[in-house]
Every structure is written in C-alpha cells, then in structure tokens.
Design a protein around this nucleic acid. Structure first.
Lengths: 203, 203, 203, 203
DNA sequence: TATGAATGAGTTTTCATTCAT
DNA sequence: AATGAATGAAAACTCATTCAT
C-alpha cells in the first residue's frame, strides 16, 4: 500500500525532498539545480532523469500537496457539521500542514501561491479550485441561514483564504509567533475574525 | 523645495513611468533594462545615470507609493470617526489606488508585497509598518469597546490586510470582476466580512 | 562461416537498421542513442553492448556499404567492356543503390561522404579509394585511346564522382525528380555529360 | 564608397574575420563562441551584441560570399561570349575565390554547401539559385546550338557545379595539388571535362 | 545477453552593469 | 546629461557513456 506510493523510486523522492529544503533555504530562483543534486547526494544528471526541468520539480511539489489540501477541504465539507466548524477544520488543516513541514509550506506559499507572476499564474486554476470549494461551503451556509448573505460566497472565500495565507506568511517571515500554542491560538483567531467579526455584537 | 523634488528631472520620471508599464506587462524578472529604456524612449545608459540598478527602480516605485499609503493610514487614524469607518477608509483608499493606476498597484503587489523571497523581504519592515498602523487602530477600538477583544490587534490587522491583498490579487488576475460598481461593492465587502463577520448575529 | 557473419545477432542487425531510419530522419547529430534503441525496440543499454559508441554505428553502416561499392567498381573494371560502359555501370550501381535503400544512401552521403569535417575526414582514405579505382579506369582508357588525355585521370574521376554525388544530393533534397524513369534518365545523363561533353561535336 | 560597407562596425568585421579562421581551423560545431571572441580579441558578450547566435555568424558569412558569387555568375552570363567561356569564367571565379581566401571558401563549402543536414538545408534555396543561373546559361547555349541537347540544362548545371565542388573539396582536404599552376590547370580541366567530355571525338 | 538507472562534462545564451565619449 | 558599445559572469539543460544487476 504505502509501498505503492514509495516504490516509484527512492531517488526520485530523495530529489523532491532535497528540493524542498533547498527551495526553502535559498528560494527557487536563487538556487541552482546542482544545489538540489548536492543536497540529495545524487548525480547532477539524475535530476534530469526524473524531472524535465527545474520548474517541473516545483510543479510536482505543489501539485502533490495542493491536491491533498483540496481533498481535505472536500472531506471536511462532506462532514455534517456547522459551516463555522468546517472553516475551522480547514484553517486547522493548513496550520497543521505548516507545523508538520514548514519548509514545504513555505515553498508552496512563497514560490507558487504568492508568486503571482510565475508559478502562481501557471497554477491559477488549481489555486482557484480551493477558493471555489470554500465558496461552496459559504454559499450553503448562507442558504441554510448559518451565515449572513451580505457578502458573496466568492468574496468571503477570498477573504478567508487571504487571512490564512497572510497568517502563514507571518510565520514564514517571523512576523508572528509560531510556538505550539501560538499556532493553536491563531487557528481560532482566523475563524473568530472571519466568522465572528471584529465588531461588538450590535445587540 | 517641493519643486525641486518634483522637477528633479523629467527624464527620470519618464523612466519610472515606463518601468511601471514594463514591469506590469512583463514582470520584473522577465523584462530587461533595455525594455524600460525603449518604453521611455531614452538611451539605454541614461537609466543608469538616474538609478544605480534595476532593483533600485522598483525600490523607488514601491517606496514612493507605500509611503503615500502609510501617510493615508495615519491621516485616517487621526480622524475622529469609528474604527469600522477607519478600516473602510483604508480599504477604500487602496481600492481607489488600484482603480486609478492598476499597473502601479499590480507591480507593487505582485513584485514587492507578495514577492516574499525577493523584494518582499527587502521591504519587510516597511510593509510591516502598515500592519502596525492598522493594529493600532484595532487596539484602540478594542480599548474603547468598539471591537471585541477576542483576537489580538496584530492578528486582526494581518487578516484585514490579507483580505484586501487577496482582493487586489483577484482583480489583477481576473478572478474577481472589476467594474466600477464591483470595486465599490468590494470595498464594503471587506469591511463587512472582517468587522461584521460571516455569522448571523447570535442574539 | 558465412552464416556466422549473418547470424551474428538479430538484435545487432535490428539496431543497425533502426539507426539508418533514425539517422535519415533526424540526422546523425540531432538524434539521440535512445532514439535508435526506441526505433529498434531494444533496451537502451543493448546498443552499447553491440557498439562501442554512436560513432561506431555510423562507421559500421558506412563501411558495410562502401566496401560493397568498391567491390562493385572493381568487378566492373574487370569486365572486358568499353570505359564509357564501365562508368555507366558504376553510375547505374550507385543510382540503383539509392533506389533500393534511399535512407541508407542518404545517411552515407549526407553524414559521411559530404560531412567533410567529421566522418568524411575519418573515412577520407576509404572514400579516396573509390576515386582511385575510377581514376584507374580513366587512365587505362586514355592509354587505350578510348578517352582523350586532356585531363588527368585523377581529375576526371573527381569530376565524375562529383557529378554523381550532386545528383544524389539533388534526389535527397528533392531538387531533382526521382521517379523510376527520372532515375534511369539521370544514369544516362551523368555519363553523357562527363564522357560526351556538352559541346556540340567540333566536326 | 568602400567606407560605406566598412563603416558598419570595425569590431563586427573583426568578429566575422575571426570566425572564418576559427571555423576553418576547428569546424563550426567543434569551436566555441569564446574561441571566436578570443581570436577576435574582443569580449565574449560583444559577439552577441552583433550577432543573435553562433548560427547567425555563419549565415552572415555564407550570404555575404554567396551573393557575390551569384552576382558574378549573372555578370558573366550578361557578357557576349560563348557558353563554354561563361562556364570557364565561373569556374575561374570560384577557383580564384579559393586562392584568395581559402579559409572562407573552406567554411562555406564544408559548413554550408556540403552540410546538407544543417546549414545546407537552411540555405538550399540560395544554393539552388546558383544552379538555376548556370542552367540558364546551358539552356541558352543549347537553344543557340552551342551545346548539345542530350541532357537537361538543370542536370548539366548540377554536374558542372558538382565537379567544381568536388575539386574544391579536393583542395581543402589535400587530395588535389593546389599550387598556382595546379589551380590554373584545374580551371581548364573542369571545363574540358564537362564541355569537351572524356570521349575521343567520335568522328 | 539484456536492462535502464546513474553519471557529469560541456557550451550557448542572456543581460545587468560599466565606461569611454 | 546623454549615448550605446563593451564587458563577462552565471546556470540550465543535453546526452553519450558507464555500470550494477
């Protein structure tokens, strides 16, 4: 089972993992393919045996992870819980992803998701897919009377994702504390901000 | 004096304006210095007479505009209005900036603010300054009982700015409609989302 | 014995035949060793089991065929016919070779014989051997009074071969019609041009 | 006058001349762009300031010279002399070109004209133009009764050019003596072979 | 024989920056 | 101020060849 996914090639995985480290440390553009090969301790040419280009390595990394995220969102949405809890679960999933492999998330956020002019554009549709799934959650909640209908679901999704990405960026660049409890607290904050709003209850 | 700064040199301004167009069209990395010179219709070498490097051109563009934004936030904060109105004014100012000069805002967002690994890092402190000013507004509003204190002002600022940046990104990459009324409505949406929250009033 | 040479290995022959197709289609330099393996439907490494290098494949192809040509010229020369008929037989043999296996002849002409700076240089002596055999025919014809002695046999051979090679090049690159009758006519033309000359008989 | 052609740029000419030496010495493929820059004693990048690619240098060299050849053939054809003399003049012009600048002719013959699979193909039309002009001469001579009509003008042109190219190749690779008188004699030989023919007069 | 993963040397091209005029 | 020729460093990618199995 697990083997099936691993079998592909141990060296191939080695290269992908090395790329995560190198991209996170030096940035995609600043690093050379030879840096990846060195980090993976494989021959230079082997990188090109498994990947057609430096770009393709990043593409692979992004898609592997983003598909997991999309799946997580879909699963979350399928659960019979309140919309607010769904959003909380998504925020939690993303924050945990960062906790679990900060380098990988850094690469995905910094080099793809926020790299609007390069990989961000390439994967725009895939990224937008996530917005769409979140928007669906909002839309259903509005229809069900859980959420107000003052803003479009599309916009709410954008704001929600924007807040999360900014939070991640804060961690990545050390603008935000990222201790265990800080992260747990942040999960709550995103949802509180977006769902609860900043305003005091108007009574 | 002021004149001195403005007059500085018509050619210098020409180059900056050309750079905005070229950066917006081709991206900072994908364009050559000669593209800027061509667009400005000045000699290649003149670019280096006025700017020390290609980087410095973007730095200049960013700082010029970001300082205007910081000033606008400060002025807004000084006004004796409700916190929600202050945030509305900031959102409005940024949206109008985009309406007025989409190319410039595109360059600033895409090439600096979201370019976490290059210019974003360079100008991190300056960008963070904006978060700080917004956080101040939130902090004061919490102290005054206008805003709930469930999230830290710092976090609220991050979420607010994150939502706005995502909205701009949506316009820049055509994921969001950007007609006159669309923009006006979006201004309202950001504030409604962040301040009002998505949840129906809990009563 | 003879069987031994033929049997040698079916795979080896498969590779040589595939190489002809691939060299003809893509050119020697533009193709990769893997293209040959793919065309032959054998494993990549097997090519190196039978041949020491990519170069050696072309060398083998050339020598196989060129030796046949040399033998044909020798046999022709041994026949008790007029010199003009001998040249006609050689022209005919070469033209028929092209008719029979245009890809192989294309490879030999384009990649070896005309590739003066690479394989042409390597096989210069072998190629020159053909000129020498032709020159012998001319020399004997001059001695016998069949041919005039106004040009050296060496030069006559060069001109004769040059005309034939140009004719083949014309076919290879579609500058010359290559229908069945066209080829037959061309055989006659070469001899007529070189032996008969263009001038009207001076009486 | 002469200035007009030279003015272009001394360095540019320097690079072209250096390229001729380097291409002739090492071959187009075997040499690096840096070899050309070194030979010309200019900075590496300057080569790319004047030429878009290594290929373009060879293209330029070829076209410069080939156009001179075409012009020479046209002028020759315009002269009111016998066809045989016209062909003699063309052979003479080409042989003299080689005498005058053997490196340049070597490059053109070896790297373009005979390089059927690379530059030869690129410039096929231009090369064919020469065949066409020669064929015209033959055709008119046939119509005027100067030449027999046993072969098509197109074919005669191919044979004539083939013989000349083979002669040049002979010189280039030292298969043929190239002393002053050898060259003069060869000029006569080509015409004698192609126009006079090898056969003794049939009377 | 047969396989295909692994190796790593080698070169064109790009382009920011400098500098002489 | 203004010009644009001159400089040269830097890196992705290709692919023939080797080798362990």
């Amino acid at each position: 089972m697990a083997a099936a996914r691993t079998t592909a090639s141990a060296k191939r995985r080695l290269i992908l993992d090395a790329a995560v480290k190198v991209f996170a440390r030096q940035g995609f553009h600043a690093c050379r393919v030879s840096d990846i090969a060195d980090e993976a301790e494989v021959a230079y040419g082997l990188v090109y045996h498994y990947f057609a280009s430096k770009d393709q390595i990043l593409d692979t990394l992004f898609l592997e992870r983003w598909n997991v995220l999309l799946e997580a969102i879909r699963e979350t949405d399928a659960r019979p819980v309140a919309a607010r809890e769904k959003l909380a679960a998504i925020a939690s999933f993303i924050a945990d992803s960062y906790r679990h492999d900060p380098d990988l998330m850094k690469v995905i956020i910094v080099e793809v998701t926020r790299a609007a002019n390069s990989f961000g554009r390439t994967h725009l549709a895939k990224i937008d897919e996530a917005y769409g799934l979140i928007a669906d959650i909002v839309a259903k909640a509005q229809a069900a009377g859980e959420f107000k209908s003052l803003v479009t679901p599309q916009f709410a999704a954008l704001a929600f994702y924007g807040a999360i990405e900014q939070m991640l960026t804060g961690w990545i660049f050390d603008l935000l504390p990222q201790g265990e409890e800080d992260v747990e607290r942040a999960k709550v904050f995103v949802v509180e901000t977006i769902c609860g709003g900043l305003d005091v209850e108007s009574i």
